[in-house]
């Protein structure tokens, strides 16, 4: 049993760390979002391994179901044709890498290895541990943590209203959003114009930037 748990822990860890690495280093931002979804699934599997079933289901529902879709939509709404460099370069990349590697190898790992955790004594052989389940969790959320629950509800409402207000666009100021093909045409147009001035008649019609209707 222990070997099975260790093997699945190793697999889940490899999935989490590998897909997180891919997610921050891959060039295409949509691929990065898909790697992020894989990473969220791995974290959910880790929660299952830790016997927090409700959290695992909530992770899959909220992160994989909602936040990833939100991220994918945001990427597609703000997609640019030629993004150029997708990561910082030069000394900024070096400083960032040094900060992250130092934080991991010189601060976090020595700290958590040197600290003596106050682990409770393991249960006697045969006796099972007292683990809380979703029933206790639900009861405590609405009794013990009632105030925090209400505050989180207000926060969610405010975030929803705030997101709508921020992303709202008045109809009068609305522009037509170009498709990627139209953007490509525009870009080719500008590059050919810079390279050699072509006659006006040969240019493809530029997409109009009038109102959407």
């Amino acid at each position: 049993m222990n070997t099975l748990i260790q093997v699945s822990f190793a697999l889940v860890t490899a999935l989490i760390v590998g897909s997180a690495m891919m997610s921050v280093t891959v060039r295409n931002i949509i691929h990065a979002a898909l790697w992020l979804i894989a990473c969220f699934f791995g974290v959910g599997a880790l929660y299952l391994l830790l016997e927090a079933e409700f959290i695992a289901v909530a992770q899959v529902l909220i992160y994989v179901g909602a936040i990833s879709i939100l991220i994918l939509f945001a990427i597609m709404l703000t997609r640019q044709l030629e993004t150029g460099r997708y990561m910082v370069t030069g000394w900024r990349l070096w400083v960032t890498s040094v900060i992250c590697v130092t934080l991991f190898a010189a601060v976090l790992i020595p700290t958590l290895l040197s600290h003596r955790w106050n682990l409770p004594a393991p249960p006697a052989a045969g006796g099972s541990e007292q683990l809380i389940g979703p029933a206790e969790l639900g009861r405590d959320v609405v009794f013990t943590y009632l105030l925090q629950f209400q505050v989180v509800g207000v926060l969610l409402t405010m975030a929803l209203i705030g997101a709508i207000v921020i992303a709202f666009e008045e109809r009068a100021r609305r522009r037509r959003i170009l498709t990627l093909a139209e953007e490509h045409t525009l870009q080719q147009l500008s590059t050919t114009r810079q390279a050699a001035p072509t006659p006006e008649s040969e240019q493809p019609p530029a997409p109009s930037t009038t109102d959407r209707e």
Partner: peptide, 23 residues
């Protein structure tokens, strides 16, 4: 800790805003 450091790297090194949010 490894996941946190990878996320920190993504938030600091990515140049697109959505990439930073992913970190």
């Amino acid at each position: 800790a490894a996941l946190f450091c990878i996320g920190l790297f993504g938030a600091l090194a990515r140049r697109s805003m959505v990439g930073v949010l992913m970190g």
